[in-house]
Simulated scan of single mutants.
Amino acid sequence: MNTDLLDAMKSLADEKGIDREVLYEALDAALVSAYKKNFNSKTNVRVDLDSDDGELKVYARLQIVEEVEDDDLEISIEEAKEIDPTYEVDDILEREVTPRNFGRIAAQAAKQVVTQRVREAERGVIYSDFVDRLDDILIGTVQRMDQRYLYIHLGKIEGKLPMNEVMPDESYKVHDRIKVYVTKVENTSKGPQVYVSRTHPGLLKRLFEIEVPEIYEGIVEIMSVSREAGDRSKISVHAEDPEIDPVGSCVGQRGQRVQTVVDELNGEKIDIVHYSEDPVVYISNALSPSKVIDVLVDEEEHATTVIVPDNQLSLAIGKRGQNARLAAKLTGWKIDIKSESEATEEGLLNNDSAEVDVEDHDDEL
């Protein structure tokens, strides 16, 4: 075998991070297969490749038996002892059967193995890279599209953005740059597959982590996100330090931080509310911008009845029930909203009830 080819194999192994021994083992298997295929041999063989000078030898491996039943696989003890008197039955005798033109065949097999192993190694590196980016934001370029996906160039790989995870009213052209959220990475027989989204709640969370240093540094924590992509979202935030205003941190001076997120999401409205371990306070905050009179909690059913002023009922429920729906997703509680007059008629509210204290920093943009 050409020593230049061996040198190239060594260089590629080092460059791609492939163990040389793994490469040589794969090459041995390929050479055995190539020998059997090209020389129509049923014999068990072993290929010996000298990794220094490239010298190649093929040995037939024959089992020593008392009586031969298959000449391709066996040799008699009598014949074996003529070669070496120390042989015993069931030993393996190796006999060199290297074909004269096997070097050319071996070189072709080596090229195929190297190509395959390099491809596998590159796929492995790509898969590892993108698994580490799961639940993260990447910036890519729209390459093409079909009925099912937008295909986003992400550097080493093409990400798939399902059409049902493109935000409503968004449209893209080839070469447009786009921020996407990595939702799934699979290692398939066709290579790594990366799936991304524009509608996932994680995209909103990561955008705030990028824009708000206090979140990145762990001073402010995003506790929950509920999102109806392209229309409206809610996030709840919390800070252990009572001196820190988590909502104000997310809003930024003159609303600059939240506006950057809104612009990235093409005008999606975002409610930022204070998190509380008290479900009464938390649910009241989550229903912002509506005011809340009282929250009746059913711990067993994990459900609440929220009472709001009559003139706030439609605001609390929201258009097509969106505000209440997002608040329920945000808090994890079932929410049934009733007007003050309705609650009074049902005996759920007495006239002495006062509005629930809601954090006064809730913001909407």
Rank of each mutant, 00 (worst) to 15 (best):
Q256S: 13
N311F: 06
S171W: 10
R227E: 06
P201S: 11
S171H: 13
V180D: 15
H153C: 00
D362E: 11
V258F: 05
Q256D: 07
S290H: 07
I157A: 06
Y35T: 01
E243A: 11
D362N: 15
A239V: 02
D271Y: 07
D294W: 09
L349A: 05
R325T: 11
E301T: 12
I244K: 11
I307H: 12
D263M: 04
A109E: 01
M9E: 04
E217T: 10
L161P: 13
L313G: 06
A80C: 01
V58C: 04
K111V: 00
D71H: 05
I210E: 15
T331K: 07
N164H: 14
D71Q: 10
V58R: 08
I64R: 03
D336Y: 06
S290F: 02
E300C: 02
S51W: 07
T260K: 10
Y127M: 10
P309H: 09
E214D: 11
K160E: 05
R61N: 06
K36H: 04
N311A: 05
A13K: 06
E96D: 10
R148E: 14
G159Y: 09
G155Q: 09
A121G: 01
V280L: 02
P309L: 09
R117Y: 00
E345I: 05
A121D: 03
N350P: 00
T141L: 05
R232T: 09
E158F: 03
D136Y: 11
E342F: 03
D231G: 02
Q112G: 01
P192D: 07
L6A: 04
P246G: 06
I139N: 15
F102V: 04
Q63K: 13
V237R: 08
M223S: 06
W333S: 01
D362C: 15
E301L: 14
V196P: 15
S341Q: 12
V125H: 14
E217F: 09
A29D: 14
V262R: 15
V196C: 14
G321L: 05
I126Y: 04
S51E: 15
E209A: 15
V262F: 00
I77N: 01
G191K: 13
T331D: 08
D91L: 00
L161S: 07
V237K: 07
Q259V: 00
S197V: 07
V114L: 13
A286H: 08
V142M: 08
K334N: 11
E355S: 09
S236K: 10
V185T: 08
L287I: 05
D241T: 09
R144Y: 03
D245N: 14
M145V: 04
E96L: 01
N285G: 06
I222E: 08
P162K: 09
I105K: 05
V180F: 13
Y59F: 11
L49C: 02
V58E: 03
V22P: 02
I337N: 10
Q108D: 12
Y35I: 05
T331V: 01
A328D: 06
E94S: 07
P289M: 04
E228A: 07
H175M: 14
T304E: 11
E96Q: 07
K190Q: 09
K57A: 04
Q116K: 06
D176T: 14
E67N: 10
V280W: 05
V308K: 06
I293L: 09
G191Y: 14
G202E: 12
I222P: 13
V306A: 10
K57Y: 00
K173V: 01
V142L: 10
D362R: 15
E122K: 03
L150E: 12
L73W: 04
L287V: 00
D91F: 03
S128A: 15
Q108M: 09
I137Y: 08
I92R: 03
